[in-house]
Simulated assay, not measured.
Amino acid sequence: MIHHLGDWVIEEACRQQVEWRAKGFHQHRLDINVSGRQLVRPDALKSFEDSLQRHGLGPRDIGIELTESVLIEADETVLEDLRRLYHRGFHIAIDDFGTGYSSLSYLKHFPATALKIDGSFIHDAPTQPKDRAIMEGAIFIGHRLGLEVVAEGVENAEQLSLLREMHCDLVQGFFFYRPMPAKEIDRLLGGFVPGHEGPPS
């Protein structure tokens, strides 16, 4: 089922991004989580590229996220496909970093543009020195490798303040927004685009 579901997600993401582009929302990229089981299929990433081409989309419109365990288990064909996407300018994020094998030696081999630190480390970082140290180390390593660093699972102002001190590039989590349907996101995006009606207060 994951192959059918994965194909549907890619198609729906492309369709929705085209709709948002038509409304004038050009500044925001949409990223898709790709399952490891999807990558078992030899043409998985080619199918992803074909979907974007059918919808007239490119690297600035859609990115992908894969967990570190998926990347570690990927065969050379998959890695070559990822390298091709990387060199075409696609955003490729290593998701949930810190929860898989976390072998730092693998990071230099992955064609990635971003590192997403798992929320389990952010949760207790303000009060737990070890979690804080892991956070600082991951951000430092990500930056030294030239990667954008994203903190997942930010739920309160204290966590956000700490991440700012650590110079984390981006954050995401319930402190800002919970998952929402596309129509609500329309109103949200409208608040960032001149000439559009902003979100309600």
Rank of each mutant, 00 (worst) to 15 (best):
M166W: 01
S161F: 07
H109Q: 06
K108C: 02
Y106N: 08
I134F: 00
Y177V: 03
S120I: 10
Q172I: 07
A125K: 02
E165I: 05
F174W: 13
I139C: 06
V154H: 10
E148I: 13
L162T: 07
E165W: 13
V154D: 05
S102P: 09
F175N: 12
L145R: 08
F174S: 14
S102K: 09
A125N: 02
D124Q: 07
I134R: 13
L115C: 02
S120F: 06
D169F: 01
I139Q: 01
Y106R: 04
K130M: 06
A114W: 01
D124R: 07
Y177Q: 05
V171R: 08
Y106D: 04
R164V: 13
L163Q: 01
C168N: 00
F110S: 06
S102V: 03
L145I: 10
R144K: 10
A125G: 08
Q172N: 13
F175K: 04
F110Y: 06
C168H: 01
V171A: 15
C168E: 00
L147S: 11
D118T: 01
K108N: 07
G142F: 00
K130V: 13
G146I: 13
R144Q: 05
I139V: 15
E136R: 09
A114F: 09
L147Y: 07
H167I: 00
F174D: 03
A138W: 02
C168A: 05
H143G: 00
A157V: 12
S161T: 14
K130L: 09
L170R: 14
H143A: 01
A125V: 06
L162D: 09
L162E: 07
L170I: 14
I122M: 04
F175S: 05
E136W: 04
G146K: 11
N156E: 08
K116H: 11
S120P: 08
P126T: 07
P126S: 15
V154F: 14
I134W: 09
I141N: 14
E136Q: 10
A157H: 15
H167K: 02
I141V: 15
L170M: 15
Y106P: 02
E158P: 14
D169S: 03
C168Y: 00
H143Q: 04
T127P: 04
S120Y: 12
L104Y: 02
L160C: 08
G146M: 05
L162H: 03
V149P: 01
I122Q: 05
T127M: 05
S161D: 15
E136C: 07
M166A: 05
H123R: 15
I134Y: 09
L162Q: 10
G146L: 09
K116E: 04
L107R: 10
D124T: 03
L115S: 15
F174T: 12
C168K: 01
R132E: 13
L163M: 05
G173T: 13
E155W: 00
S120R: 12
E136P: 00
S103R: 06
P126V: 05
E148V: 14
